[in-house]
Design a protein around this nucleic acid. Structure first.
Lengths: 145, 145
DNA sequence: CCACGGCCTCACCTATACGTCATCTATCCG
DNA sequence: CGGATAGATGACGTATAGGTGAGGCCGTGG
């Protein structure tokens, strides 16, 4: 187990830390991806010598990142979003800034949702058209056959 | 007007043909974009000597392409669909293929919408928390001042 | 002892969708 | 005649999100 400085499958007990590969497998991404995110300053694991050591917080952060991706955000956007979380929420100025960014993002998201819904409607129309065309085709064949 | 082989703003009458730039302006894309699509074999305008000449059909095709993009398809995918349409729109096999792809994308979009809505909820929570924190801060100052 | 994994860094490769020159030709307009 | 304008081709640049080795450092097991 990485937490003890040894290799292996990892026990169920003191597994509080992860290596890149462990975390990667856990999240179904490649180690390369995780290192890449680090390069982009999305995660900053601590090190044991040169080796990356990931905590549960790091893992949670990765989950957030992946979710952001699922939402179609760029890594840059995800980073901004995470940076907001990281900011010290005790200073009123910073809070106001945070609030503003959150609100801007909310607007963007609502916009996106609208566009998404329009797209869905359009695609459903195409789907129906295709379906009915297929049915007509079938009926035609039946009549002809 | 391009249709007469001359330049200018184009009249309202015999404007059945377009030059790249005309078509581009019409569709709010750059000429480069249109030429790029040609390079990718998405459109194949005829030529007058070396000059590209676009018909209304070409324009319609471009509209399809742009719509595909809006719906989140890659140019490659769009090309496949267009090729299907070009081949023989009465072939059930091809339609079924199209239908399947459309349905896959529909699922993806619905997924995205779900994730988006979750994200919006979360962000609204952050917004509220930040707001109330700011209010508390203000109340505090008032009491202390 | 030394091959075998596992980890590290560095650096180049891929695909997508164009933008940006650079260079050349044809044509119009004063 | 000489720009300006529009069109063409080709090559190179850009951003995003990684993939794919190359070459090296450890520690362990046979």
């Amino acid at each position: 187990m990485a937490s003890t400085g040894k290799r292996g499958a990892g026990s169920a007990l003191t597994d509080t830390f992860f290596t890149v590969t462990e975390l990667a497998r856990d999240l179904s991404v490649t180690p390369r991806t995780i290192r890449f995110y680090e390069d982009k300053a999305l995660i900053t694991p601590r090190r044991a010598g040169t080796m990356r050591v990931y905590t549960k917080r790091d893992r949670a952060r990765m989950v957030l990142i992946l979710r952001g991706k699922r939402l179609g955000f760029s890594l840059r956007e995800i980073k901004e979003y995470l940076d907001l979380y990281d900011m010290d929420p005790s200073q009123a100025e910073q809070m106001r800034l945070l609030l503003k960014k959150v609100q801007v993002r909310l607007e963007m998201l609502e916009d996106q949702r609208l566009a998404l819904e329009e797209s869905i409607v359009e695609l459903k129309e195409i789907e129906e058209q295709t379906l009915s065309a297929l049915e007509q085709e079938a009926a035609h064949k039946k009549a002809a056959g």
